[in-house]
Nucleic acid binder design. Structure first.
Length: 924
RNA sequence: GCGCAUGUGGCGUAAUUGGUAGCCGCGUUAGACUUAGGAUCUAAUGUCUUCGGACGUAGGGGUUCGAGUCCCCUCUUGCGCACCA
């Protein structure tokens, strides 16, 4: 029987579907394992071959774990809210729901064909009310919570209100937008609106007038991770800074826990580093610098280098700083106003591209608390208002930014470290011995920078001029989007007071047009009846894209529960994702938000693990591999790549689907586009036209998109799966290169024909030979270890070796061919299923066949060949019994034919024996 | 600038973690078969060679009997962050 992938794969899929084989349920008798893929956003373009890479890897692992006896949860769903469907709706008027549903159907069809072991009965879509009610529920829980730094946990807002009523802010250490001091009396005297406003300062989901990334082209605000280099990640439109009332999540309250948690999870070092970077913890001190002539006013600054305080030669305020108005002297007012105006008219992007040194003197001087000397206070946009206190002490000698500023405005530079040459550049390194650092109260001279830092910090605390402080770069997440296609925020406004609207799900209303209203309100402003039954208006903003993906992994544990996001029972059984596979582009978005969201739910007692993803693997990106033809200038003649140096040519992208192994199908090319119908070719002697190639992003315009459906059609899903794994290490980015897929296809056919001769099955019950057993046990050992290490590419090679060996041994023994089918099942499930059921005659599925154990005894060699080397250079081999003792090995090495030549006249200094590998004779 | 990766044949890659570098596949070459095909099979394939061997894992240095692997310096190419004090 010939290997017919279409028949084999269709019948395997039919069997799996009919037997509902991938459905899982809680089973306390078996250990659980949760394997998850980052669910896709179903775009209109469908899947290309890059998308399934991670899914194939996770599917191999899931299938393996299942065969190892684990109860494996392996679900798939769709991240259904997103801008493209809404943009399409704006252009065409088609409801995004319809677009989304169509795209999901297409994705499902494509995924179905690749043979994944997903439990589709647990599938979720973030735009289903039954799913997003739990997104809204979590939001309200955050709205009704505050973060207690003493307990290091979120707590119900009612407990905060109680505390305020009894003690005011006394004894309170809570994450907040700005420090606030209230007495119990102040609190009691506040009206409802005042209390609501005050509580916003502490709520974990809060409304704030924040500076946001506003994208006029998309008509919405964006979170920091949705902006890159001043442009929106989706669409690439310019982004401006704008102050707006927005819902925010107090992610920053969890900064330290997000950082600490990284040490307890099994993620790649580079991804952890990216998150550490993004969280950006820095230790330092906050200090007060009084303004000369105004003892009432002091600048609060943050620095990581309190040890450099003797080198402060000026102060700098961010243009947006509240201090600017306070320190500007009347004679400088005009200049300062002009500068502020200039800064305001520069976009974020302009600031990034053009990093000119700009600034203006405020007219005031601040007093250095250690030297008592006055230093000028400047205003410049190189200081950011959003970080620290928006004001800095400038130490030009030891900070390159301060240095550039000082040089530009001719301000003094005082070096503080012995031997540091600051004539050309600042000395930023934190090493050396301190000089010029002596005041009446503190003397740092002679100390190392490290010691000086500690001494300075100690002094700052003791003298009361400031306090030691840790700052984080991580900002709160802006949670409002001025968009239609997202989860409604379940908030209503009762007499102007934002109030939780608990009747969930709050369903997304229908609207006539997917655009802002004439008055500039978000699209939900068009909804009729958008108010509570009591008539209170509902929030018009919707949630951002990351909302729905922040806790979806919990929902898969218990997807149909109407009472809770996840039942206690399901949560305690499945606990957390054991293996999460997805792209590293989510490092500072989804993977931060999910961890935050999960930690919050953990604080609330809703989930039992505080980290959502125990192990995470980032699969590499699959790039496109474009092909080119070379048109000879001003002709319709194309020259083969190896001859193009003799002609003046223009490279033209050619559809990779009419090129095979870089050889162009000339007829197909003539039919590809009308202008090439009469194309002529200059080829090599063999008549073949060879194309050039380049690695580029996979995109339609490069004609390098390869659709998995086409690969499945031609080679079958098993070949696609194995080839994607064979391409290289999972975590590495690589171009999709079809050259070589034939090799994998050939292998699968070879494996198939191992079980057949002509039309008959040749598997019999003969005793396997020791050779046969060695081949298969070697394979089982290698593949088991490879799967555990996610080294799938080397497994494929092991399969090829094993099948070649068994074929040349003429192996027909069921005892060998059965385990071969079983270990092949995670990689090539369809062909394994066909072999298992049709050829080997089993009733059940190969998916449930227990993973075979290997036996070392078949792997032990009876004889072994060892290299004999002299001073490390191998000269000849000796073959001897594998268990030969050391003396015998040495003897054999010295007595071997040819040994005399190397030993001639030399003294043997040492003999090193690595059993089974090498004998090194050191001579001299 | 800071941080994290990475560098091995014509190409994708491998190397039991310090033990004969180049497994497996592609490509190439030669041969077999053949109803002539982009099918299948068999063999060869790092470079140089005076056929003894020599040289080879980005480059330079070091540790070691022995280094792709460990240490130091330089370079390459990716990626992340980036006026974060």
């Amino acid at each position: 029987m010939e290997y017919n992938h279409k028949e084999i794969e269709e019948s395997a899929r039919r069997f799996w579907r009919d037997a509902d084989i991938y459905k899982v349920a809680i089973d306390a008798s078996r250990p659980k394992y949760y394997v998850l893929d980052m669910f896709p956003y179903p775009s209109g373009a469908g899947l290309h071959v890059g998308h399934p890479l991670g899914y194939i890897a996770s599917d191999i692992y899931a299938r393996y774990k299942r065969q190892k006896g684990f109860n494996v949860l392996h679900p798939m769903g769709f991240d259904a809210y997103g801008l493209p469907a809404e943009q399409y709706a704006i252009q065409t008027g088609q409801h995004p729901e319809i677009t989304t549903r169509q795209n999901i159907e297409r994705y499902c069809k494509q995924l179905e064909k690749i043979g994944f072991s997903f439990d589709w009965s647990r599938s979720i879509r973030t735009c289903d009310p039954e799913f997003y009610r739990w997104t809204q529920w979590a939001f309200l829980k955050m709205f009704n919570s505050w973060y207690d730094r003493n307990a290091n946990s979120a707590r119900p807002i009612a407990e905060l209100e109680e505390h305020l009523a009894q003690y005011g802010t006394e004894g309170l250490d809570a994450a907040c937008t700005k420090e606030m001091v209230l007495s119990a009396e102040d609190w009691a005297n506040m009206d409802a609106k005042g209390k609501s406003d005050a509580l916003m300062n502490w709520r974990l989901a809060y409304l704030a007038n924040a500076v946001v990334n506003w994208c006029p082209k998309l008509g919405t605000v964006l979170a920091n991770d949705e902006v890159s280099e001043g442009l929106s990640v989706r669409g690439g439109y310019p982004v401006e800074q704008k102050k707006m009332w927005q819902w925010c999540l107090r992610v920053s309250a969890y900064a330290q826990r997000l950082l600490d948690g990284l040490d307890r999870i099994d993620w790649s070092e580079s991804l952890k580093e990216t998150q550490r970077n993004w969280i950006g913890r820095s230790e330092g001190a906050e200090m007060r610098f009084e303004i000369q002539g105004n003892p009432e006013l002091a600048l609060e600054i943050f620095t990581t280098r309190p040890d450099t305080i003797f080198g402060v030669t000026f102060m700098v305020l961010a243009p947006e700083s509240k201090y600017v108005a306070m320190v500007t002297t009347p004679d400088k007012q005009t200049e300062v106003d002009q500068y502020l105006d200039y800064v305001r008219h520069r976009t974020e992007r302009e600031r990034m591209i053009d990093r000119r040194v700009t600034g203006v003197f405020s007219g005031s001087y601040a007093i250095n608390p250690l030297t008592g000397k006055p230093v000028p206070v400047w205003i410049s946009d190189y200081v950011l208002s959003g970080y620290g206190t928006g004001a800095i002490m400038a130490v030009p000698a030891h900070d390159s930014r301060d240095y550039a500023f000082a040089r530009h405005f001719n301000l003094p530079v005082i070096p503080l470290i012995e031997g540091a040459d600051v004539s050309e550049a600042s000395y930023d390194a934190k090493e050396g011995t301190m000089i010029n650092s002596e005041g009446t109260a503190l003397n740092l001279n002679g100390l190392s920078v490290k010691e000086a830092m500690n001494a300075a910090k100690r002094y700052v605390e003791q003298s009361g001029i400031g306090k030691v402080k840790t700052n984080y770069r991580l900002r709160d997440a802006i949670f409002s989007r001025q968009r239609y296609w997202g989860e409604p925020i379940p908030i209503c406004y009762v007499d102007g007071i934002p109030t939780a609207y608990g009747n969930l799900p709050l369903e997304l209303p229908e609207i006539d047009k997917y655009l802002p209203t004439e008055t500039g309100e978000p699209p939900l402003g068009r909804a009729k009846e958008w108010h509570t039954p009591e008539g209170y208006p509902l929030e018009l903003n919707t949630m951002p894209g990351f909302a729905g993906s922040s806790a979806y992994y919990l929902r898969y544990m218990d997807p149909h529960n109407e009472k809770a996001l996840v039942s206690r029972e399901a949560d305690e059984y499945w606990r957390q994702v054991d293996l999460y596979i997805g792209g590293s582009e989510h490092a500072t978005g989804h993977l931060i938000y999910s961890r935050f969201w999960n930690k919050f739910l953990y604080d609330c007692g809703e989930v039992c693990e505080d980290e959502p993803f125990r192990k995470l693997i980032n699969q590499g990106m699959i790039q496109g591999r474009s092909n080119f033809v070379y048109r000879v200038k001003d002709t319709n003649t194309f020259v083969s790549a190896e001859l193009k140096k003799d002609y003046d040519t223009t490279p033209i992208h050619v559809d990779v689907n009419i090129v095979s192994n870089d050889v162009l199908d000339q007829e197909a090319f003539r039919g590809w586009r009308p202008e090439f119908a009469d194309a002529q070719f200059i080829t090599g002697d063999d008549g073949r036209y060879v194309c050039g190639w380049a690695v580029e992003k996979m995109s339609k315009s490069m004609f390098n998109v390869v659709n998995p459906d086409d690969v499945v059609e031609r080679y079958g899903a098993d070949t696609l799966r194995m080839y994607e794994m064979f391409l290289g290490p999972l975590e590495q980015s690589k171009p999709w290169d079809t050259n070589g897929i034939d090799g994998v296809y050939r292998f699968i056919r070879k494996m198939w024909s191992l079980y057949h001769k002509g039309d008959t099955v040749v598997v019999d019950d003969t005793e396997p030979s020791a050779e046969n057993l060695k081949s298969i046990h070697k394979l089982i050992k290698k593949v088991s270890a490879d799967i555990e290490n996610f080294s799938f590419n080397t497994s494929v090679a092991a399969f090829m070796i094993c099948v070649n060996e068994l074929a040349s041994q003429g192996c027909r023994s069921r005892a060998v061919l059965e385990p071969l089918a079983i270990v092949a099942a995670p990689f090539a499930p369809h062909v394994a299923e066909a072999l298992w059921r049709q050829v080997l005659g089993h009733e059940d599925s190969v998916c449930d066949a227990p993973w075979p154990e290997y036996d070392e005894k078949w792997l032990i060699e009876s004889t072994v060949t060892m290299a004999v080397s002299f001073n490390g250079k191998a000269r000849y081999n000796i073959t001897l019994a594998a268990d030969a003792p050391r003396e015998q090995i040495e003897k054999a090495a010295l007595e071997a034919e040819g040994a005399a030549k190397w030993l001639d006249g030399k003294t043997i200094r040492k003999i090193i024996v690595v059993p089974g590998k090498i004998v090194n004779i050191v001579i001299g």
